[in-house]
Amino acid sequence: MALSTNADFKTRLQSWLPKLVLSPSLALVLVFVYGFILFSVYLSFTDSRLLPSFGWVGWENYSKLWRLSHWEISLKNMGVFAALYIGICTMLGLGLAIFLDQKIRGEGMIRTIYLYPMALSFIVTGTAWKWFLDPGIGLENVIQSWGWTSFEFDWIKNRDYAIYTVVLAAVWQTSGFVMAMFLAGLRGIDNEILKAAQMDGASNWNLYRRIIIPQLRPAFLSAFVILSHLAIKTFDLVIALTGGGPGRATELPATFMYSYTFSRNQMGIGAASATIMLMTIAAIMIPYLYAELREKK
């Protein structure tokens, strides 16, 4: 409430209080998020190595970055990981949600079980799957001890397949959450529409394909945005599950950035890779947030 000059002091103070209360958070965010982003972006154009340094080198870090096979592998892995992770989580989440929406006995219990991995740390998830998939003691060993001695399952140690174990663990962790999003979407659909469609003679298959799933568009969009930003940020899981290996088979941009900045003392290149990660996420998030916030107005 902006007020004219004859407002008394207390009233005027009251009108400033809201902005005053908001300002610490805004200041924190402006400095620690946007200030830092600018700083990191700036570093990506400098010759920083172990410590930040301010010698301007232009695009050199970026051109170096794109020539690094390590970065190329990280990006390729990210492509495989993100596509499978988003795709499988979405399909699995939708499928389970549809199945769970059929007046299932014990739905609450099942939902709880599907959702609990979300509460765990990626480090815990990584540890559990790491040893379960370990050929020496895990699945392979167990099946062999059951008598199928030629059974082999060594993906986690195999350069060509290790990335799929990361997908498996990540899907295990988040698909239940995606299921919940779709379930909420399904429950939000007007039952009368479904009844009308049934009167029109639609089979269950057609009901889902033509009426229900098209109405879940917002849920698909939210799931995609959340999953894609999680995919790009995936870091802890890889550290705990494979440590980026074997070799560089499961390196992702997030682990690349971390090792170049803190272990290899190539801060400029690390900052350049972080900048690219930010741009990618921003390209997805900003249009989404823009649309969301505009709608609500």
Binding site: I37, T261, G270, I286
Partner: peptide, 26 residues
Amino acid sequence: DTIVFGLILFACFIPFQIVLIPMAKM
């Protein structure tokens, strides 16, 4: 106010790698 909110909200979605270096310094 919506822009202010958008600025605050976007902060949750950034890849935190982008703030690691300055944060350590800060």
